Amino acid sequence: MKTATLKLDTLTCPSCMLKIEAAARSVPGVDSDTVHVSFANSKVKFRFDDARTDAQTVAKAIETVGYPVLGTSVA
């Protein structure tokens, strides 16, 4: 399992967090219990199985629901 942090464009409403969390959790290989969106920092952090997915796939899922991803880091 790897941990990823995605930097998002500034979040403007709490309901944005729910949409972003749902998008990240929908990607096979993401540990849905670890998905956390920080409203104050405009970041989403999660753990994923790198044999099943990658951070870029999750970023694309989030962008599909209308939230630009500005940066990605994986540890």
Score class of each variant (00 low, 15 high):
Val74Lys: 03
Met17Ser: 13
Phe48Cys: 05
Asp33Phe: 08
Glu21Trp: 03
Ala55Trp: 11
Lys2Tyr: 00
Val58Ser: 00
Ala55Met: 11
Pro14Asn: 10
Thr72Glu: 13
Arg25Gly: 00
Ala22Arg: 13
Ala24Val: 03
Glu63Phe: 06
Ile20Pro: 08
Arg25Val: 00
Ala51Tyr: 11
Thr64Ala: 15
Asp50Lys: 06
Thr10Tyr: 10
Asp49Thr: 04
Leu8Ala: 07
Ala23Glu: 04
Arg47Val: 12
Val65His: 04
Asp49Phe: 02
Ala40Tyr: 06
Lys2Pro: 00
Ala61Asp: 01
Thr53Ile: 07
Thr34Trp: 06
Ala24Ile: 03
Val27Thr: 06
Ala59Leu: 10
Tyr67Ser: 08
Thr10Arg: 14
Met1Thr: 14
Leu8Met: 08
Thr12Asn: 01
Ala61Gly: 04
Glu63Asn: 04
Val37Ile: 13
Thr53Met: 06
Thr57Glu: 09
Arg47Leu: 11
Phe39Ala: 04
Ser42Lys: 07
Gly71Val: 03
Asp50Thr: 04
Ser42Met: 08
Arg52Ser: 13
His36Phe: 03
Thr64Asp: 14
Glu63Pro: 03
Ser26Arg: 11
Cys16Thr: 11
Pro14Phe: 02
Thr64His: 11
Cys13Glu: 13
Gly29Thr: 10
Leu8Pro: 03
Ala61Arg: 02
Ser32His: 10
Asp31Cys: 07
Thr34Glu: 07
Lys2Leu: 01
Ser32Arg: 13
His36Ala: 08
Ser26Trp: 04
Gly71Cys: 04
